[in-house]
């Protein structure tokens, strides 16, 4: 799949933002006044900014409100509804903390749950696409949720907890890659099933239907950069999860340790998210000469 920069940045930043807001809402830290303002502003900026960026990415942003209507079947619609509900529910809690030194824990708790539900909804958009075997697996929501929780805990200043969650993220990433590699290899869809000609013999693309690119080949038959996937996986795993986990577990808790862990995590998780798209193969590639693995 085409690794669109906007989607990578949107999913990473909104994941971090909703993770941070979940910890704030759950009352793991109880900042008041200006301190609370900074934390809530950061959470809203990350979560809301990502959402806004995704809206402007649309072909018709002026119709974006319609995306709140189909929550009964569409995870994308559910994500929109949950995100707005989470940010809305968080508002009284944040206002109470910032202006009245009086957090409203019921709002906070509900908002925290909605924040995590939003992250899960984001991941389910991908995990429910059967035509992309690598995504269609429980490890997809696991990675998204672990990344949001670990990054959120770090931003919320819960360094020991974050260290443990980074270790969980490392395991989730490794499982996701392992399962993903196997899923494409074992996928039932082949050029033979895609054309139905497998019953006659071995099927090979002889001629494409068009000489140039089209929307399908650019969006779904992306093949650039897979040769670097081993190195990028190392960067994602070590930078995004293992090193932050070790830093936070071994170094005395300090702003320096937290900052270093955050920087490493951002580089690593961006690499992981790039791979999430770039490595994912869509079965439509079978019509365009992609042989079965």
């Amino acid at each position: 799949m085409h690794p669109a920069g906007s989607l990578i940045i949107f999913t990473v930043l909104s994941g971090l933002g909703f993770g941070l807001l979940a910890f704030l809402g759950a009352g793991v830290v109880l900042p008041l006044g200006w301190e609370a303002f900074v934390w809530f502003a950061a959470g809203y900026a990350l979560a809301g900014g990502g959402l806004l960026a995704s809206v402007f990415h649309l072909g018709h942003p002026e119709r974006a409100l319609l995306a709140f209507t189909q929550w009964r079947t569409s995870w994308l619609s559910r994500e929109a509804v949950l995100a707005v509900a989470a940010l809305g529910m968080m508002a009284p809690y944040a206002a109470g903390s910032v202006f009245f030194a009086q957090p409203l824990p019921v709002f906070g708790a509900i908002a925290a749950v909605l924040c995590l539900a939003t992250v899960i909804a984001t991941s389910m958009i991908y995990a429910t696409i059967r035509a992309v075997p690598r995504w269609h697996h429980w490890t997809t929501p696991a990675v998204f949720l672990a990344a949001a929780l670990a990054g959120g805990a770090l931003l919320a200043g819960q360094l020991r907890l974050a260290g443990g969650l980074f270790a969980v993220l490392a395991v989730a990433l490794a499982l996701h890659w392992q399962a993903g590699d196997r899923r494409w290899r074992d996928a039932e869809s082949t050029p033979g099933s895609a054309t139905g000609l497998g019953r006659i013999g071995r099927v090979r693309l002889f001629e494409r239907p068009h000489t140039g690119a089209n929307y399908i080949t650019r969006e779904m038959v992306h093949v650039v950069g897979r040769r670097h996937s081993a190195k990028l996986r190392l960067i994602a795993l070590v930078g995004g999860a293992v090193l932050p986990a070790m830093l936070l577990a071994l170094m005395p808790a300090s702003l320096l340790a937290a900052g270093a862990a955050l920087g490493l995590h951002l580089v690593g998780i961006l690499a992981a998210r790039w791979l999430f798209f770039a490595e994912a193969e869509h079965v439509v590639g079978l019509y365009y000469g992609r042989a079965a693995a």
């Binding site: 072909g59 018709h60 119709r63 958009i125 929307y215 969006e219 079965v283 439509v284």
Partner: peptide, 22 residues
Amino acid sequence: SMCIGCGLCAWACPYGAREMDP
């Protein structure tokens, strides 16, 4: 008139049957 051009339907289709109008 209701399509926002998000492209998710084209991803969901195994057959590549949907294309975005340029």
